[in-house]
Nucleic acid binder design. Structure first.
Length: 338
DNA sequence: CACTTCCA
DNA sequence: TGGAAGTGG
């Protein structure tokens, strides 16, 4: 989701180890969604416990987070709050797409096309309140700070990064750059291994580091201009102009300077553009949080996974050992690294 | 996701 | 021996 700025970026490939000691504000929904989409059976069914509760997200959360901690990374999970009213049509559209995907999943299953079934099933991924509640519970049991954003989690994480409270924002989406996050880390959840996007070929997924100041410098634009470009292309809060992508929007912003001028020159009409600008340039965020990493509550974690959802005790213990092996918290943020 | 098993 | 496929819950 969000905007695709890929063609304007030159991401730097880094390793997980290079993030050791760094505080990363993770877009929790973004991360959990990826687990929900990817941790599935061949026919597309997610992992479930004896009561048919989906547990894919719990599996991914524990396995990946324990690895981050073991590497010495200090994660902070940021959760979405109430979406901005302008996001309503995006949300409605996504729900509709999920329903369509559900139908196509069923069709592919009865046609015996497992590959298509799995891919369609991934697109049906959605959270229940219970899943969100339990995800938050596990994060707390792991002793990791949790931040509840008033609205967009990406906005919250970005402001925290911009203020230097954390070293980077971790998300697949590029939106945090619009929200002013100075450093974006992509693929922190899905890196290393190989991924199968299409049919037969595999691809290595690298962790990418993207710096906002460098992005702006490369294209000789301001943050405000980047946001105007995004509004032209289309964001979660507006549809954008048909036929305008990153390249054309860059050309337009370089020629005319700002959105108002572009609209005058081209006749494009964009509703609520001032408000959308404001969403990105003045991110709504809470300061009701503490960035403290506590000791994990091992017994309660084991109980939740093993008794609660029938995970194998030895598997869970292995992950918890990794959490315990995590390097002690560096209280200092080394700003010079990024 | 991450571990286990399979097979060239 | 290591990449691909399978499994976990």
């Amino acid at each position: 989701m969000g905007i695709n700025l890929r063609t304007l970026l030159e991401p730097e490939t880094i390793t997980l180890e290079e993030l050791s000691g760094k505080i990363i504000a993770l877009d929790a929904y973004n991360m959990i969604y990826q687990f929900l989409a990817s941790i599935r059976m061949k026919d597309g069914r997610p992992l479930t416990d004896d009561n048919e509760n989906v547990v894919s997200h719990l599996m991914g959360l524990l396995s990946r987070t324990s690895n981050l901690l073991k590497t010495g990374i200090k994660p902070v999970f940021v959760f979405d709050g109430v979406p901005h009213p302008l996001k309503e049509s995006t949300i409605t559209y996504r729900i509709m797409r999920k329903k369509e995907a559900m139908e196509e999943w069923k069709k592919a299953l009865s046609a015996g096309d497992m590959e298509r079934a799995r891919s369609k099933a991934q697109q049906t991924s959605h959270f229940t309140h219970e899943m969100v509640r339990e995800t938050k519970h596990v994060i707390e049991l792991m002793g990791i700070p949790l931040v509840q954003a008033p609205s967009d989690g990406e906005a919250q994480a970005s402001l925290m990064t911009a203020k230097g409270e954390v070293d980077a924002t971790g998300s697949q989406d590029f939106d945090s750059l619009l929200f002013g996050s100075t450093t974006l880390i992509r693929n922190i959840t899905m890196s290393g291994r190989r991924k199968m996007p299409g049919k037969h070929h595999y691809k290595t997924v690298n962790i990418e580091k993207i710096r906002l100041p460098e992005l702006l410098k490369t294209h000789e634009i301001t943050h405000e201009q980047l946001v105007d470009m995004a509004i032209l292309i289309g964001t979660d809060f507006n549809e954008g102009i048909k036929g305008i992508g990153p390249k054309k929007s860059l050309k337009l912003i370089k020629k005319h300077g700002k959105l108002e001028e572009i609209m005058v020159e081209t006749g494009y009409e964009i509703e609520h553009f001032q408000e959308i600008r404001n969403i990105f340039l003045n991110p709504m965020a809470s300061d009701d949080y503490e960035l403290i990493w506590k000791k994990p509550q091992i017994e309660r974690l084991v109980e939740l996974y093993v008794e609660g959802h029938q995970f194998k005790e030895s598997t869970i213990k292995k992950y918890i050992e990794k959490i315990e092996a995590s390097k002690p918290a560096h209280r200092q943020i080394r700003l010079d690294f990024f």
